[in-house]
Each structure stands twice: as structure tokens, then as C-alpha cells.
Simulated assay, not measured.
Amino acid sequence: MSLPIIEIIHGKAIDAVTADPWNKAIVGPALDIVGNAPGSLKIYRGLQTEEPKHLYVYVAWTELQAHKNFQADPVNYPEVGKRVGSFMVSDRDMFHVEPSADPYKALNAPVTELALLTPRPGYTKENVAEKVKTLVESPHSLQEDLGLISAFWGPVVEKENTLALIVGWKSVEAQRGIFAVPQVAALLKACSEVAELQVTLASLLEYP
């Protein structure tokens, strides 16, 4: 079975969303259209932990071409853009991640971490990929008692030199506590030595 591709769109949300992020009346008019598009599999949305005014929407598509076909829809795609713009008002960004493994456990977790990694000077994307793969596949990282539920990684389609690591956690405290585990801390340090990291956390809920 082939893996889906994950679209991630994020940006600053209006106050009505930050006050009631699960209110379907606000996001529903846009997400209903996306959910009915051919090739759309699942949708998740939620607010960033560090910046609660920042909204993330994850869409799983059967393949990248399915989303491109939707973007070419002369009626529905402009309408979605207008409706998304009504609740995600600034600092918007959108990209796709090609996952290395099933993404749904990480996206269904109570807390989902998104780490974007770009090579430091003197290193390549392949160097970064090697370290990330070692981290994700390490038996130390995958111990359930550490609070890690699932993880996957993969290249970012629109950002040639960027990899994404997406991790599902039982809690924010579990994610922060992982640095106290010596074996995992060493693997994380190895990643940070070859890559610059941008890390955010969000609590996602599947739509609808």
C-alpha cells in the first residue's frame, strides 16, 4: 500500500479560532470542500502550543498529483482560498511532506511535533537524512514509556534542502522530557550538529 503525501498549511488565525479552535462553523466551509476533493483522505487541524494564535492544518492526499489537480479546479480551489483567508489571516505557508512511514498515529497523537531541518554549512541533505533516520529507528527513541507514540520523516517537496520530522507525543511534557534521556539526547545532538532545526508543537484534531 502506497503512503499518502501530507500537505501542511499554517498561519495566524483570527481570534474566533483561537478562542474556540474546534468550532466547525468557522473552518468547516473551507475544510468541507477540501475533504470532498478527489484524493483527499484525512484532515487535521489545531493550534500551535508555543503560539496559540497560529493554526496548523494537515491534509493527507493519496498523492501529490491529487492536490495539484485540486489546485487546478477553477471553481473550488479559489473558493477554498477565499474561505481559508477568512480565518487564517497572515503569515501563511504551505508545503508537502513525503512521509517515510504511516503518518496517522503521529497526527492522531495528543501532541504533534513538527521539526524542519536544513543542513548547516558543510553538510548535505543526505547527511541530515542519515542522522534523522538513525534517530527515528533507534530503539531508545521508540520506547513507549518515554511518551513517544509514533514518528515519521521525509523530504519537503517545495524546499529542496529541507527535511521534516513529525513526531506524535502523549504530552508536551513527554516531548520536553526526552532531552533527559542520555541515549536520545546524544542522537538529537547529532542531528543538531549537521542541521538547523525549527520545531513547533500542536494539538491536532481530525476533521470533522
Rank of each mutant, 00 (worst) to 15 (best):
S138M: 05
A30E: 09
V97M: 00
F95C: 14
I43F: 13
I166P: 07
K159Y: 15
H140K: 08
A13Y: 04
R83L: 14
L146V: 06
S203H: 13
A151H: 04
N23A: 02
I26G: 11
S138L: 06
E126K: 13
T112Y: 14
W22E: 08
E130S: 09
K24L: 03
L55E: 09
N36I: 00
V17I: 04
P103T: 15
A195T: 07
P4E: 07
E160I: 13
A115D: 04
K12R: 04
V181H: 05
L146D: 01
S86Y: 06
E79L: 02
L188I: 12
Y104A: 05
A195H: 11
T134I: 15
D73L: 05
S141T: 13
Y44N: 01
L55I: 15
E193C: 08
G177P: 11
V167S: 10
Y58G: 10
L146A: 11
F179K: 15
A37M: 00
Y104H: 05
F95E: 11
A72G: 07
A202Y: 08
F152K: 06
A190Y: 12
E173W: 02
V167E: 06
K42M: 15
A129C: 01
K12H: 05
H54L: 13
A101E: 01
F179A: 10
G154D: 09
D15L: 12
S100N: 09
K125Q: 09
A109I: 15
Q183A: 10
A25C: 08
A19W: 09
N36S: 02
K68M: 14
L142G: 10
E7R: 02
G147P: 01
E113W: 02
V136S: 07
T62E: 10
P38I: 02
G28D: 06
W22R: 06
K125R: 12
A174M: 04
K131M: 08
F87H: 03
E126A: 09
P78A: 05
D91M: 13
Y207C: 00
V80K: 03
W61Y: 01
F179Q: 12
P103M: 10
E173L: 01
P182N: 04
G147S: 03
Q48S: 09
M88L: 09
E130P: 10
M94K: 14
I166E: 04
P78G: 03
A115G: 03
K159P: 13
V59N: 05
A60K: 03
P99V: 15
G122M: 03
G85S: 04
S150G: 10
G35W: 02
G11M: 01
L187T: 11
A174I: 02
D91S: 14
S171L: 00
G147H: 01
P29E: 11
K131F: 00
H10A: 11
A72S: 12
E137R: 00
V128D: 03
G154M: 11
Q65V: 12
I8M: 08
L205T: 15
G39S: 08
E137C: 00
H140Y: 12
D20H: 15
E206H: 05
L135T: 04
A60M: 03
V136N: 10
P99W: 14
E173R: 00
P155L: 11
E193F: 14
H67C: 03
A106F: 05
Q48V: 07
F152M: 05
A25P: 08
S192D: 14
A37R: 03
Q198I: 14
T49F: 14
H67Y: 03
K131H: 00
E98D: 12
E158M: 12
V111Y: 05
I149D: 01
E63M: 06
E7V: 01
I178P: 02
